[in-house]
Simulated scan of single mutants.
Amino acid sequence: MSNIKLIIEERAANIGKFMVGRLLPFRQKRMVGPFIYIDHMGPVKLNERQNFDVLPHPHIGLSTLTFLFEGSIMHRDTLGNEIEIKPGAVNWMTAGKGIVHSERTPEYLRDSPLYMHGLQIWVALPKYLEQMDPQFSHIEEKDIPSWEEGDLQFKLVAGEAFGKKSPVPVFSKLFMLEIKSKTKQVVNIGNELYGEAGLYILNGAIESEGNIYEPKQLLVAKDSSLCEFTIQENSTIYIFGGEPFPEERFIDWNFVSSDKELIGQAKQKWKDQAFDKIKGDETEYIPYPTFNRK
Rank of each mutant, 00 (worst) to 15 (best):
M176V: 08
I179F: 06
I179S: 05
I179V: 09
K180I: 02
K182W: 09
Q185L: 11
Q185G: 12
V186L: 08
I189A: 12
I189N: 12
N191T: 09
L193G: 05
Y194Q: 06
G195P: 13
G195M: 03
E196R: 06
A197T: 01
G198V: 02
L199I: 14
Y200N: 03
I201P: 05
I201M: 10
G204T: 14
A205N: 10
I206P: 03
E207R: 14
S208M: 14
I212Q: 02
E214Y: 06
E214D: 01
P215W: 11
V220Q: 00
K222G: 00
S224I: 01
I231F: 03
E233Q: 11
N234E: 07
N234V: 04
N234P: 00
Y238R: 05
G241F: 01
G241Y: 00
E243P: 04
P244C: 08
F245S: 07
P246L: 12
E248S: 06
E248G: 03
F250G: 06
S257Q: 11
K260I: 13
I263Y: 09
I263D: 09
K269R: 10
Q273A: 04
F275I: 11
D276R: 12
K277I: 15
I278Y: 01
T283Q: 12
E284C: 04
I286T: 12
I286G: 01
I286S: 10
